[in-house]
């Protein structure tokens, strides 16, 4: 379906797949996401950053049908997104989760096969009667799943239980499972959380490879180096509102972004008091740690 697209290195930006217009999400009195506009196009990697609690994941959930936006609408390939998450997946949006949500007691291969669910049709009677169509579809699914495992480098572990994979491979498996539904848009929720720099680089390569297949990618991440290496565009979300959108250089250089992450320099007494407090705490911490011998090298 999607693999028919050009697989050039440059991956020209194609038509817009995702178009979120004025998305607002309120929980009671709390506005978690306020009037956010965002577009993602085929063959493009868009980053979504913001401090904790900025509403990134809420926005993600609006895109995947877990939440229905209070106001505004999300259009996917020129159609308004259906309100249930399984229909969203069928429409062509796949996602991974911030805290890995694999099917822990299924094998690696079975996890990917579950991802194929929307692209296969065999129902209950077909499974019971086992006609030739069933075997054909099952074989095709397995083949495609193995291809995907090959793609993320887990083919050799196809028969292992998902729970027994090391952390980095679980992340990869989640991506493979998401790809199995043949999406046009892949949403990655902190794909490198908890990874070491080496693993992060491998993930980076993987994301590029997925982009080159013509799949649009929207990624939430806290690792700034990862985001700025990867993304064609970056949107910054602060307190539920989109502060800024632009290429890496623009976002990196913007003072407001830095302020959002580190806080604005205050004027007046409270700041000075706090600094004094912190200093006092630090000196105290030093005296206690110095008492423990052999710890100097650790710092």
């Amino acid at each position: 379906m999607t693999t028919t697209d050009t697989t050039t290195k440059t991956a020209p930006v194609g038509e817009t797949v995702l178009d979120a217009r004025g998305v607002t999400m309120r929980f009671g009195g709390l506005t978690a996401v306020n009037d956010v506009n965002l577009t993602v196009s085929r063959g493009e990697i868009v980053g979504l950053i913001g401090p904790n609690g900025a509403g990134k994941t809420t926005f993600f959930n609006c895109l995947t049908g877990l939440y229905i936006p209070t106001e505004g609408e999300v259009r996917f390939k020129d159609k308004v997104l259906p309100p249930q998450s399984f229909k969203v997946t069928a429409a062509g949006i796949a996602r991974t989760f911030q805290n890995i949500r694999l099917f822990a007691n299924m094998t690696v291969l079975e996890n990917v096969l579950v991802g194929r669910h929307t692209r296969t049709k065999e129902g209950f009677w077909s499974a019971i009667l086992r006609g030739p169509g069933f075997h054909k579809a099952e074989a095709a699914s397995r083949e495609r799943a193995m291809e995907l495992l090959e793609f993320v480098g887990l083919a050799k572990k196809a028969d292992h239980l998902a729970r027994n994979l090391p952390y980095g491979e679980q992340r990869k498996l989640e991506i493979a499972r998401a790809l199995a539904s043949e999406p046009d848009l892949l949403l990655l929720d902190e794909p490198t959380a908890g990874m070491n720099p080496q693993e992060t680089r491998v993930t980076e390569e993987l994301v590029f490879a997925i982009r080159d297949q013509g799949i649009a990618i929207l990624v939430i991440e806290h690792d700034m180096r990862f985001i700025f290496n990867l993304c064609d565009r970056v949107a910054v979300l602060v307190q539920g509102e989109k502060l800024l959108e632009g290429d890496s250089a623009t976002v990196q250089g913007d003072e407001r972004v830095i302020a959002a992450y580190l806080g604005e320099p205050f004027e007046g007494a409270p700041g000075a008091e706090e600094v004094a407090e912190v200093e006092a705490a630090e000196t105290q911490a030093e005296t206690t740690t110095d008492a423990a011998p052999g710890k100097e090298n650790d710092r």
């Binding site: 399984f86 949500r101 099917f103 822990a104 579950v114 669910h117 296969t120 499974a127």
Partner: peptide, 28 residues
């Protein structure tokens, strides 16, 4: 037969993690 098929895998997926199963396009 039902256990070792698309529907059986969907059952196990629902048992393991319903949210993730829905996100995989399974009509829970």
């Amino acid at each position: 037969r039902s256990g070792d098929s698309r529907i059986g895998r969907a059952w196990v997926a629902i048992r393991e993690d319903e949210t993730a199963a829905l996100a995989m396009g399974i009509n829970g």
